[in-house]
Design a protein around this nucleic acid. Sequence first.
RNA 1: GGCGCCGUAGCCAAGUGGUAAGGCAGAGGACUGCAAAUCCUUUAUCCCCGGUUCGAAUCCGGGCGGCGCCUCCA
Length: 468
Amino acid sequence: MSLVLYDTRMRSKVPFAPIEPGHARVYTCGPTVYAPQHIGNMRSQLFADTLKRALLADGLRVTHVINITDVGHLTHDDVDQGEDKMEAAAEKSGRTAAEVAAEYTEQWRVDRERLGCLPPEVLCKATDHIAEQLVLIGELEERGYTYRIEDGVYFDTAKFDRYAEFAGLDLAAEAEGARIAAVEGKRNPSDFALWKFAEASVVRQQEWDSPWGRGFPGWHVECSAMSRRYLGEHFDIHTGGVDHIKVHHTNEVAQSECAFAETPWVNVWMHNEFLTFGEEKISKSKGHVLAVADLIEQGIEPLAFRYFILQAHYRQQQAFTVEAAQAAATGYRRLLAQAAELRGATGAADPARCEPFESRFRAAMADDLNTPRALAVVFDVLKSDALEPADRRDLLTEFDASLGLGLADAEVADLAQESDPRIDALLEERQAARKNRDFATADRIRDELAAEGVEIIDTPEGPRWQRK
RNA sequence: GGCGCCGUAGCCAAGUGGUAAGGCAGAGGACUGCAAAUCCUUUAUCCCCGGUUCGAAUCCGGGCGGCGCCUCCA
C-alpha cells in the first residue's frame, strides 16, 4: 500500500514515491536548544516519528536526519544588533552557550525517547557544520545570489523568481504587515542573512572566521548545508512546524535551489499544526512552557501524551488541556491493560480473520497518517466478535510498530508486588470482618487504606492492593 | 494591513456529497454486602443565514466566533 502524504508545496495529497527505490530520506527541523523544549515542540517530533514509522511499515529503509540549532537563531528583540538566542540564554544563566545547548539538547533527547520516538539515523548540530555552511554561502556568492552590507552577507531574494511560490506569499503585503524594522541596507524585505558579522563591541562566544569576516551563520543556511551532507542535494521529505513555512522553509528552498540547481530540492514538504493552549499561551518568549516532565508530575505518562497526540490528525490544531490529556491517559491505561492481557493469549492468529482489520488500519495510516482513524481500528480489534485473542494479540503487536505506544510489550500490572506486612494484615482483618458480615469494620479498613493511597481491589481470587 | 486554518455530543476529536468513527466523562444494566475494577447497553443532525443538489456536517455566498503566520517559536 503506498502512502499518500499532504505536500505543503503542492497544497494537496500526493502519492509518495521515494527518489531512490526502497529508501526514504527525511529531514526534520529540530529544536533550537536555548530553552526547555515544551510539549508543543514535542508534537512536531511525534509527527515526524509517526511519519518515519509509516515509511518503515511500508517496507522502506529510512534515513532520518534531525538538526540541532545551536547558533544563529536570533531573538526578535533587536534583530539589528543580532542578538543570538544561544548567546542570550547563556548570558542569562551565567553559563557558556555550549553548556546551555548541551543541557537542552539532552532534555529534548530524553523526552523524545520517553515519548517513544525512534532515534534518528543522524543528529547533527549547526556548530559542527560551519565549514559546510561556508561552502554553501560561497557557492551562492559565486552564482551572484548574495550581496554584502555592513551587517552581513545576505541572500538577494529578488534573484530567485520562484521565491514567493513555495509558501504562496504576497511579498508586498507581507512587507507591509511586518511588525519589525528591516535591517539597514537590505535590498528587499524578504532578504535574509547567510552570514552575520560579529561586531567589535559585542562579545560573542560563538563566532568563526570566514572569507567575509569573523561572524556566525544565519539560521536558515544550516538546514541546507547539513541536509546536503547527509541526504544529498535532492531528497524525499522535509518536515517541520507550520510556523516554518513562510520564512524558514521558504528561505531554505531559495538558497538550496539556487545553490544546487535542483528543482524541486525536496519532493514533499510536511508541516504539523500547533498544539493550542487556550488562555495559557506557551510561546517561549512568554515563559510559559509545559514540558514532558511537567506532564509526568501531573500523572500523565509520556506514552499517554503520545496517545493523546495520535488522537488528532497532525495537520489539525489540537487543543491541549490538562483535562483532555488526563482523559487520554485513562484511555491509554485501559488500552495498555488489555494489550497486556492479550499477550498471554495462546495459539496462532488466523490471517483471514485479521486481514480486514489490517487493511483498514493500513488504509488509515496511508491516508496522510490518519492516526485517529487508525486508533479507532485498534479499539475495533479489541471489541470485535470476529476475532480470537490470538488474532487480537498479533494485530496489536503489528499496529504498535506504527503507533509506538508500547502495546507490544505491555505487561500485566502486577498487583501487590511489593509486600507490606501491615497492609497484608489489615487486608486479612478486613476479610475476616466481611466473613462475619461486619461491613462497618470492613469498610473502615478500606477507607483508612484509601486515605493513605492504598487501593483495595477485590478479585475472585481474593483481595489485592496497589498504591495509587 | 495581508495570508492561512478552524467551528461536529460535557471534553479531546475522525468524517470533505448519500444520510454522524473512536476515546474520556455521563446514564442504565451485570457483577459486589456496598464500593472499586471489569463487562454490556446507551447519549449529537454537525456555529448562524441563504444558495446549489434528488440528497450537504461535507460544495458556493454572507455573517458570527476561535486560532495561527507575516517577528523568535514546532
